[in-house]
Each structure stands twice: as structure tokens, then as C-alpha cells.
């Protein structure tokens, strides 16, 4: 591993121009993310979380500033298959079985396939779907589909996992289960994760660090280190310190204006 930060976001701004108006979605965002760190981007809807994640992933170009991933541009990181993306919708291909969906990334940009890529069976077991490899997405529940999407993002052994409200479309109960499943999976090989959410509980449970964004224009309002012991369990949610962190974040979110 290289020295220094894994992801470096330097003075990133993003302006969207439509025919009628321009909108400043991100205003001068600077952030460093360490190797193996789990960072949540927390903020209200429309504050630019997805846009920031897309800029990190090289799907959107910033208007100003730049991002490096392990010292390279996002598009170089894409080309080396260093980025595993999970979206709010599972976005699986309905004509492929779960297994074939997970295998799909290996058929793309083949030159960059790594020997370290885990076998599909292992991935299915990791996400708890060992018996469902032959199922089509329409035969799986929403939570199961999102597990497939997660396995697919891990299939080619990326070093950075970008997750955009991956549990946002799930019911509350499944959501909680998935949270601890993700923790278990992450504990096994500590990838760097950038996780977008608008749920405070989710942010506290998962993160090493929570970056709170303010809305319109999106700015970094504050950064909170979550120093709860790992592995994190569901019991912790009633702990004094968990509740304190949640309250801190809530206060930060409610606070008027930028950089408090």
C-alpha cells in the first residue's frame, strides 16, 4: 500500500447548468480518506452526496478541483478496476441469474482482471446467498438483490467501495440486517468505503468518520470521528456513547449555515 491518503478530494466544486438556471451542487469540498477507512457522507436529500460520490467514481467531472485515488485520476482507477460501485437500486440485469450478474464485471475490461478476484461461490456465501446463485433477480427480494449487487461490486477485488444509499430502498428491518451484514463483510478485508446515507443511525453504526454535508450549495459542515469499538453490534445502539454521537450529528445537521 502507498503512503498517504487513499482518496484525496481537493477543492471540488460542481455546477450544473440547465437551460433556465445554474445550480451550485458542491462548493469547495476538500476531504482526505485513509486506506481501509469507512467514511459516511451524511446530509439531507439534494445536498450533493450522490454528485460527490459520482465525482470520486469518475462518473461525473467536477467543475473545479480534482480527485485522486491512490495518486491516480478516477478514470485511471476505473481502468484498473479499482472501484466497486453499489447504487440505491440494485441495477441488476434481469436476463442474468444472480451468479451471472456477479460474474459480469469479469467479462468487462478483461485485461485488468486480477488473480486476487474471489470465486463466485465464495462471494455468494459471503453475502449469504449460496443457495440462490441460479435465481433471476425478479425471483429475489429487494434485500437479496442488493446483496447480489454488493457481491458484484466485490467480484473483481476493488480497493475502494463506493456505495450510494445502498439500503435506501429497503424496508426498515432488512435495512438494519444489511447494516450489520455489511460490517461483517467489511471486517473480513477492510476495504476503503465511501458510503452515502441520510440515516444518522446508519452513519454512526458503520463509520470510522462521518462527513456532514449542508444542502444547497453542498459544503462540508463538519466531520465527526466515531470511536465506538468494533465489531459493532445491534446492542450498541442503546449505548450512551452511540446516542451521544447520534445527537451530535443531528445538531450538526440542523445547524444553520456552513462551516459551524
Amino acid at each position: 500500500m502507498q503512503d498517504g491518503s487513499h482518496v484525496r478530494i481537493s477543492n471540488v466544486s460542481k455546477r450544473f447548468t440547465t437551460t433556465s438556471e445554474t445550480l451550485l451542487a458542491l462548493d469547495d469540498v476538500t476531504l482526505d480518506i485513509e486506506h481501509g477507512e469507512f467514511v459516511c457522507l451524511l446530509g439531507p436529500s439534494g445536498c450533493g452526496k450522490s454528485t460527490l460520490l459520482r465525482i470520486i467514481g469518475g462518473l461525473t467531472e467536477p467543475t473545479d478541483g480534482g480527485v485522486t485515488i491512490g495518486g491516480q485520476t478516477p478514470s485511471d482507477a476505473q481502468a484498473k478496476k479499482e472501484l466497486g460501485y453499489v447504487f440505491q437500486d440494485p441495477s441488476l440485469m434481469p436476463w442474468r441469474t444472480a451468479e451471472d450478474n456477479i460474474r459480469l464485471p469479469l467479462h468487462v475490461n478483461r485485461a485488468m482482471n486480477k488473480d486476487s478476484a474471489p470465486p463466485v461461490e465464495e462471494l455468494l456465501t459471503l453475502v449469504g446467498l449460496e443457495r440462490f446463485g441460479h435465481y433471476y433477480p425478479s425471483q429475489l427480494s429487494g434485500g437479496m438483490q442488493q446483496r447480489v449487487a454488493l457481491a458484484r461490486a466485490l467480484a473483481f477485488g476493488p480497493s475502494l467501495l463506493l456505495m450510494d444509499e445502498p439500503f435506501g430502498a429497503l424496508d426498515e428491518i432488512t435495512r438494519e440486517t444489511m447494516r450489520y451484514e455489511l460490517m461483517r463483510i467489511w471486517n473480513s478485508d477492510k476495504k476503503t468505503v465511501v458510503f452515502v446515507t441520510h440515516s444518522i443511525a446508519e452513519a454512526v453504526t458503520l463509520s470510522d468518520r462521518v462527513v456532514v454535508l449542508s444542502g444547497q450549495p453542498g459544503r462540508v459542515k463538519g466531520v465527526v470521528d466515531i470511536e465506538l469499538p468494533r465489531p459493532r453490534t445491534a446492542d450498541m445502539e442503546s449505548n450512551r456513547s452511540f446516542v451521544d454521537y447520534a445527537n451530535d450529528l443531528r445538531k450538526l445537521l440542523m445547524q444553520e449555515g456552513g462551516d459551524g
Binding site: 476505473q78 447504487f87 440494485p90 464485471p105 475490461n109 473483481f156
Partner: peptide, 15 residues
């Protein structure tokens, strides 16, 4: 095409 599937393929630098 599904927007998410397209983004996913792009994030892998698919041609």
C-alpha cells in the same frame, strides 16, 4: 437502458 447498469459498466471502464 437502465441508468444504474450503465453507470456500473462505466465505472469498470467498459468500452
Amino acid at each position: 437502458v437502465d441508468r444504474g447498469s450503465l453507470d456500473f459498466l462505466r465505472s469498470l471502464n467498459a468500452s
